[in-house]
């Protein structure tokens, strides 16, 4: 799994390439934590190149959203969510918790 972070004017773009499971989820959690500890709570999580995500990865996403939404200081937007990953998020009941955009550009433009 590779993670790329790009600071933008109004948010941080976080792109993940590969598979998020119990082995790699802690690495993703670290990046979300560094971002919020750096005072940035507007995050676009581009999932278009995520091939697989397990419940361990889904909980990392929920924790990040919880931190960002606290005190109404920000939010994690999801972009380019592949169909099977969308279905996993939906099965877990997490979809209502996120704004989901077709593309990262659209999500970034919405902040």
């Amino acid at each position: 799994m590779e993670i790329k972070t790009t600071p933008l004017k109004r948010c941080i773009l976080l792109e993940v390439n590969g598979r998020i499971d119990s082995s790699t989820a802690p690495q993703l959690a670290d990046v979300f934590n560094e971002t919020t500890e750096g005072g940035e709570f507007h995050i676009v999580f581009d999932m278009s190149n995520v091939e697989f995500i397990s419940s361990a990865g889904l909980w990392v996403m929920v924790t990040a959203q919880k931190k960002c939404k606290r005190f109404n200081r920000g939010e994690v937007y999801l972009a380019g969510v592949p169909k099977r990953i969308y279905e996993a998020l939906d099965l877990a009941g997490f979809i209502p918790y996120y704004k989901v955009f077709d593309s990262a550009a659209e999500a970034v433009g919405s902040f």
Binding site: V62, Q65, K66, K69, L91, A92, G93, F94, Y97
Partner: peptide
């Protein structure tokens, strides 16, 4: 079983 209709937070 998880309550998937509740707030994930």
């Amino acid at each position: 079983p998880p309550d998937v209709s509740s707030d994930p937070c």
